[in-house]
Amino acid sequence: MSLHVTFLGTGGAVPSVRRNTSALMLRREGDRLLFDCGEGTQRQMMRYGTGFDVSHLFVTHMHGDHTLGIPGLLQTWDFNDREASLAVHVPSGERRAMRRLLDGTGTDTGFPVRINEVGAGDVALEHEEYEVRAFETEHRTRSVGYALVEAARKGRFDRDRAQELGVPVGPKFSTLHDGEAVELDDGTVVRPEQVVGEPRPGRTVVYTGDTRPTEATEQVAAGADLLVHDATFAEADAERAPQTGHSTAREAAELAASAGVARLALVHVSSRYAGRSDVLAEEARERFDEVCLPDDGDELDVPYPDA
């Protein structure tokens, strides 16, 4: 089951030639989930071939570098005769602000657009195999982050052990793997726990949006497979981080280390580091090894923890 991230916009509030404003596409099999939608996101989607079949858009906060791409994207969908509904998730208290953004740009679509407010701890999207949860972040306005958390997977099926117990190859294997006991021709009952291992963990991807390092993020990201965290500033400008509600790359790395994540991606890179953004990765690696500083268009596959 593939879980794939495309970084559509890795820059801060001011776009640069190399980095667009915030947007991230997460693809899980046939599901496409868009997180934030800065100006020009739809062009980034075209450029990097992510596809447009998005049913859920998760907005971390209402600042323009995270939202100004939404009206254009919705209008493009409308011009292309989209019929499927769209759910736009926003922080609690921001439904009216999102409605004003859409109304003020003449965005009156022929397909349903549902604006859903979410607060810390709310499940924004519930799916049979995963859910997207909102968590508290600390910025200069109402804000949340989002975590995609997969359900646990079935344990591994021990085919050899099943055959040793007399289970014939065939449908009874699937029955056991689905958690049901089977009866053999001689009356023997074989139980799932005899041939199926312990449930295996799913994957977790955490996206913070703009934020200071917070205890809530650390808790949500505990053991996550990928943490995508605000890393607006280098240490030379560290005093700006608390003033503006952002993080330094080193702070993001310290949080990643404390949370025990498998991998950290640094985003929302200030345009002041154009041409020298490697300093952010270097400073982060002083605190945490598994760091990447993605460019726009970069992609990551998120493997299972036991892969």
Rank of each mutant, 00 (worst) to 15 (best):
A253K: 13
E239S: 04
R285I: 13
V167S: 08
G275Q: 03
V228K: 13
P201M: 12
A231N: 08
A252S: 15
A257K: 15
D278A: 10
R272T: 11
D225S: 06
L184E: 01
A152V: 08
E198C: 02
K172I: 02
S271I: 04
A256D: 05
V205R: 07
V167Y: 11
A222W: 10
A256K: 15
A222P: 08
G155R: 05
Y207F: 13
E251L: 05
A238I: 07
G166H: 06
V261H: 11
A252R: 02
A274E: 15
G166K: 01
L227N: 09
D230G: 14
L280G: 06
P242L: 09
A262F: 00
A238P: 01
H229V: 15
R156N: 03
Y273N: 11
D210I: 10
Y273H: 06
P201N: 07
V167N: 06
R285A: 09
R153N: 01
Y273C: 11
H268E: 15
G202K: 07
R200W: 00
R159M: 06
H246Q: 14
A162C: 03
E251V: 01
A257N: 15
V182F: 01
F173C: 00
A236T: 12
A238N: 03
S174M: 08
V228T: 09
G202D: 14
P201L: 11
E150W: 01
A231F: 05
S277Q: 06
V205S: 06
P192E: 08
A162R: 03
H246P: 03
A216Q: 07
S277R: 02
H177A: 09
D230V: 13
V189P: 03
L165F: 11
E193M: 06
L264M: 13
D160P: 00
E254H: 12
E282S: 07
R240G: 05
L176V: 03
P192W: 04
G245W: 00
R191W: 12
T208P: 01
S277L: 02
A151W: 04
V269A: 09
L184Q: 08
D160H: 00
Q194V: 11
F233H: 13
E218T: 13
Q219W: 10
S270E: 09
A265F: 04
G166D: 09
R203H: 02
E254G: 14
R200Y: 00
E283A: 08
D186I: 07
Q219P: 06
V195E: 03
A249H: 10
L266K: 04
T244D: 14
D230F: 08
E198D: 05
S174D: 07
A236L: 13
G245S: 03
A252H: 07
P192H: 07
Q243D: 09
A181I: 15
D160W: 00
A265I: 13
V189I: 14
D230S: 14
R161D: 02
A221H: 06
E235S: 07
E218H: 10
E283F: 08
A231W: 07
V149T: 08
F157L: 02
A236C: 11
D185R: 06
A152L: 05
A162D: 04
E193Q: 09
A265E: 10
G170W: 00
P168D: 12
T214L: 02
V190I: 11
D210R: 12
P201K: 10
G275M: 01
